[in-house]
Amino acid sequence: MIGVNTAHRSLAARSWPARLLLYLGLCVFAAAFLAPFYWMIISALRPQSEFYQIPIPVIPSHLTLQDFVLLFQRSEFGRGLLNSAFLAFVSVVLQVFFSSLAGYTFAKLTFRGKDVLFTAMLATMMIPYMVTIIPNYIIMAHLGWIDTYWPLIIPGIANAFGIFWMRQYCQSIPSELLDAARIDGAGEFMIYWRVVVPLIQPALASLAIFVFLSTWNDFLNPLVFLRNQDLFTVQLWLAVVSHEGNVGQPAIVMAGSVLASIPVLLIFIFMQKRFVAGLTAGSIK
């Protein structure tokens, strides 16, 4: 970190017009990144009549929750939110547990074939998703799993990224702690459960956030494997609402988009440090 500090001493040394220009540029890009969010929120809250004004007012005359009411009246969006929350919860618990158990094993236990198995696991991350989705659909159909949540939960447990990321973190656990537990007669699983898990809480939280986001935002898998609207996730309901004429006003679609985005944006803003650390850790170590 000291290095980073000295590395950019030149920034402070710049003349004030140069610095002004730099901040101005940063603000322009910040506005470009924020504007679509602003428009989503405002479109959901503005009175529908304003959509037909030319030009459409950038600041609405007043705010209303009418479109949220219409969204819930005309679709099963609330059920979609609950379905997605359920799926995300189950996926988080299973993926965090199995990834951390395997990641700890690769980091701290010695066994024959470890390097080969680890490399093979990393190699599986290279397989393009589109190649496996068709045969997976056929396999799921044979298992009778179409229109159930199994295809959305079970294959995801084999999370190579999660195992890799937990392994990187677990390498910092001092081996003396594990040996001490072993001398005290603790079994291998108990060592993981009682000694390792309490030590890797931050990494577990980061992975949990990551799994939550990818499950909550997933669209292709639910689209392929679900037919019954009762099981639809929030992303599927968004697609339904945006394509059906009677509910398809842009205001209602934006109301749905706001609801679908609130959980991910809240999680990101409040747990930002953990999230960004989680994303970057894997790529440098």
């Binding site: 969010f37 989503m40 669209f219 679609v253 985005s261």
Partner: peptide, 13 residues
């Protein structure tokens, strides 16, 4: 962190 579906919908609006 925004879903790809929401991204598509915001841009179509």
């Amino acid at each position: 962190v925004t879903s790809l579906v929401v991204t598509g919908l915001i841009f179509s609006v």
